[in-house]
Amino acid sequence: MADYKTYEQKMRFYKSAGWQAIRQQALVRDNYECQECKRQGKVYTDHHDPDKRKRLDVDHIKEIEHHPELALELDNLQVLCVWHHNEKHGRFSKKENKWDDEKW
């Protein structure tokens, strides 16, 4: 069983043929739609964003750092838009009030 704790180990995994193949299967299975948007009654596909950057991610439901045995399991994958993927992983930082003033 592989270890995915360092950045280099993760990048090696995400560039592997095995990951590329299972990632494509997840995209097809989920019809190239964000599953979290879908749960909220919305539809978001890779055609909704006018710029040419990556718009959909394939997410590990149970993270590979803690469950490396599930890294290539289709049932452990879901398609998410970049926004929902970042939200799931807490990648949005809240702006702090640098003045700490009381609001009136």
Rank of each mutant, 00 (worst) to 15 (best):
R91V: 10
E73Y: 12
A26M: 05
R91K: 15
G18H: 05
E33Q: 15
A71Q: 02
K62V: 05
N31A: 14
W83R: 02
L74E: 10
G18K: 08
R55S: 13
L56M: 02
W83P: 00
F92Q: 14
K95A: 15
Q25A: 10
K38S: 14
D59K: 03
Y44C: 02
A21E: 14
H89Q: 13
N31W: 10
I61M: 06
P50Y: 07
D30C: 08
A26H: 00
I61L: 14
Y44K: 04
Y32I: 02
H66Q: 14
H47W: 04
D30V: 08
Q78S: 07
K54D: 10
T45G: 09
E33C: 10
D49N: 03
V58N: 05
E63Q: 12
K38M: 08
D49H: 09
S93T: 15
C81M: 04
Q24S: 12
H47Y: 07
G41Q: 04
L27D: 08
W99R: 15
E69R: 05
L77C: 04
L72E: 02
Q24K: 11
W83I: 03
H84E: 00
Q25E: 11
E33F: 03
H66A: 13
K54W: 08
P50H: 12
E69M: 09
P50R: 09
R29M: 03
I61R: 12
K52R: 11
K94L: 14
D57R: 00
F92I: 15
H67T: 08
E87V: 11
D30H: 03
C37V: 07
P50G: 04
L70K: 04
V58C: 07
R29D: 04
H48I: 07
E63V: 06
R39E: 11
L70H: 01
R55C: 07
K98L: 15
H89G: 06
R91L: 15
Y44A: 00
N97D: 15
Q40H: 09
D57F: 01
N31Q: 15
H85P: 04
V43Y: 04
V79P: 00
Q40K: 08
R29Q: 08
L70Q: 05
H60D: 03
L27Y: 08
E96F: 13
H85R: 04
K42V: 12
R53E: 12
I64C: 07
Q40G: 01
Q35P: 06
D49G: 00
C34M: 05
A21H: 12
D57G: 00
E65P: 01
T45C: 06
I22D: 02
D30Y: 05
Q40C: 06
G41F: 08
E96R: 15
G18T: 05
H48S: 06
V82D: 02
F92D: 11
H66D: 15
R53I: 05
